[in-house]
Write a protein that binds this DNA or RNA. Structure first.
Length: 487
RNA sequence: GGGGCAUUCGUCUAGCGGCCUAGGACACCGCCCUCUCAAGGCGGAGAUCAGGGGUUCGAAUCCCCUAUGCCCUACCA
């Protein structure tokens, strides 16, 4: 088997979509698994749909996911250039050869005629398609025209799909599609075939929506007398409504997932499992394990729904498994943004002891802020007295106050060296026992006073990290508030 | 309208003729643990393998038909 060469051919028409990127992922996995090359080729043959700057967005998405390419528009390669708009002579050459050999022809039918034709065909319940008016007309090269492939009129075209086997199409139902547009640019049908051939692409992996037009590509290869690549049409990704996943379904661009706090390795794992599986039981696999086991044979045939809950779960799992210092670095930008100021390394590192406890609570990176911002705010925290009192002291501000004062008394007397989670815990538990109260009753006001929230990391580790002075200060503030309940 | 593809728990899937009274994961429910929230442990419910015909000693697995869903049907990719 010759070495694997696969290409990802995005159109720079917008943000890279998860469905699209999943195709890139399979390309990349195949290349990496078999020591081949992964090529990025920009398919910008539709000038009207091009959106400025999206090429860079696409490359950024690939980088973010860690899908590195061996040849591409930015780094070049032996088959440069890697932008179709820069390869026009190649398409022209192929089209001219086809014209010369009578396998393609010029067509000067107007858009109006084609529209009218389509309408009448639809009304007459006929399959729509070009009626081949110009096929025998020998349109002059001087007039405005397109070039169409002269498809076989009868018989069948077989597409040998690697996953499905032979798929047969009746030629009578296929029309003479356009290869070269009026503006001199090729259509996808011509450009992809010409480039795949010249770039020595061995496997064409693309979405199932292309299967219907695959016979056109097969015929184009045949007309050009070139060998076909291996066709691999992978199932489409569906949205929650079962339709093809699209913008209507909410977040679909890779950038959005990055911003929402998904880890690239989690998204990669999740996407890989949309249509591929390693074995009966494995779901969590680091990139290396996926690349070590990936093969086309593990691909499924039915379209998969994009289940955001599963992605979230997987993300939480990956977050939990991060090295604490790595987790902190990834959380840093979110926290800095919320705080509105940069954080120094020592500040960030002060969180290290409590970080594992935070990791198991964070599902999406921005939530990191909820569990840590109070460590770095200086003014009074905002919370209600009801939150402070919790369930045990509900509507009993004086009891809550007593409790807080007792805690204050207890904590004030701890020596510096004793300010650690274990001693804090035993001291406060003892206090609760002495007062004949449930631990939770005593702990809740402390938690709210210290963090400003009812949901926070484990209390004693939190207090340890917060430090004695700040803890005392915040408890004092809480006591003041409880003393005048009607604020 | 035509053509193509697909069809296993709600979801992602394992299964490629006997190992399946169909396995795993997420979600869900219950219990345990417990300072909030999580995480974790244990257990549970959940799929007559879309339906119907065949082939076979034996079918989720092979063949046919039907149904449903999706995709395509552009001088877009």
């Amino acid at each position: 088997m010759t070495s694997v060469r696969v290409r990802y051919g995005p159109s720079p028409t917008g943000e890279p979509h998860v469905g699209n990127i999943r195709t890139a992922l399979f390309d990349w996995l195949l290349a990496r698994r078999f020591g081949g090359q992964f090529i990025v080729r920009i398919e910008d043959t539709d000038q009207s749909r091009a959106v400025e700057g999206t090429e860079e967005l696409i490359l950024d998405a690939l980088r973010w996911l860690g899908l590195d390419w061996d040849e591409g528009p930015d780094i070049g390669g032996p088959f440069a250039p890697y932008r179709q708009s820069e390869r026009l002579p190649l398409y022209l050459e192929a089209a001219e050869r086809l014209l010369r050999e009578g396998k393609a022809y010029r067509c000067d039918c107007t858009a109006e005629r084609l529209d009218a034709l389509r309408k009448s065909q639809q009304q007459a319940k006929q399959p729509p398609g070009y009626d081949r008016r110009c096929r025998e007309l020998h349109v002059n090269a001087g007039v405005d025209h397109v070039v169409r492939l002269a498809m076989p009129l009868d018989g069948h075209t077989i597409v040998n799909d690697h996953l499905r086997g032979d798929v047969s199409f009746q030629n009578a139902l296929l029309d003479d599609h356009v290869l070269l547009k009026r503006d001199g640019f090729p259509t996808y049908h011509l450009a992809s075939v010409v480039d795949d051939h010249h770039m020595e692409i061995t496997h064409v992996i693309r979405g199932e929506e292309w299967l219907s037009s695959a016979p056109r590509h097969v015929q184009t290869y045949a007309a050009l007398d070139w060998d076909q690549p291996v066709w691999v049409h992978i199932p489409i990704i569906r949205g929650p409504d079962k339709g093809k996943l699209s913008k209507r379904h909410g977040a679909t661009s890779i950038r959005q997932y990055a911003e929402q706090g998904y880890l690239p390795e989690a998204l990669l794992n999740f996407l890989a499992l949309l249509g591929w599986s390693k074995d009966e039981t494995t779901t969590i696999m680091p990139r290396e394990e996926i690349t070590a086991h990936f093969s086309l044979d593990g691909l499924g045939l039915s379209s998969a729904m994009f289940d955001i809950e599963r992605l979230q779960e997987m993300n939480a799992r990956y977050i939990r498994d991060l090295e604490p210092s790595d987790f902190l670095q990834r959380g840093r930008p979110h926290l800095q943004q919320a705080l509105g100021r940069p954080l120094s390394d020592p500040e960030l590192d002060s969180l290290l002891p409590i970080t594992p406890a935070i990791q198991e609570r964070v599902k999406l990176m921005p939530e990191f802020v909820d569990y840590t911002d109070f460590f770095f705010t200086s003014g009074p925290l905002s919370y209600t007295n009801a939150e402070l009192m919790g369930r045990a002291y509900k509507n009993k501000p004086w009891q809550a106050l007593e409790s807080v004062e007792a805690s204050l008394e207890c904590l004030r007397h701890l020596h510096d060296s004793a300010w650690s989670a274990p001693t804090l815990e035993s001291a406060l538990r003892e206090l609760a026992a002495q007062r004949g109260e449930k631990p939770g009753a005593v702990f809740t006001p402390i938690r709210v006073a210290a963090t400003g929230k009812r949901i926070a990391p484990p209390l004693f580790e939190t207090l340890e990290t917060l430090g004695q002075p700040l803890t005392i200060q915040r408890l004092n503030h809480a006591a003041e508030r409880l003393a005048r309940p009607d604020d």
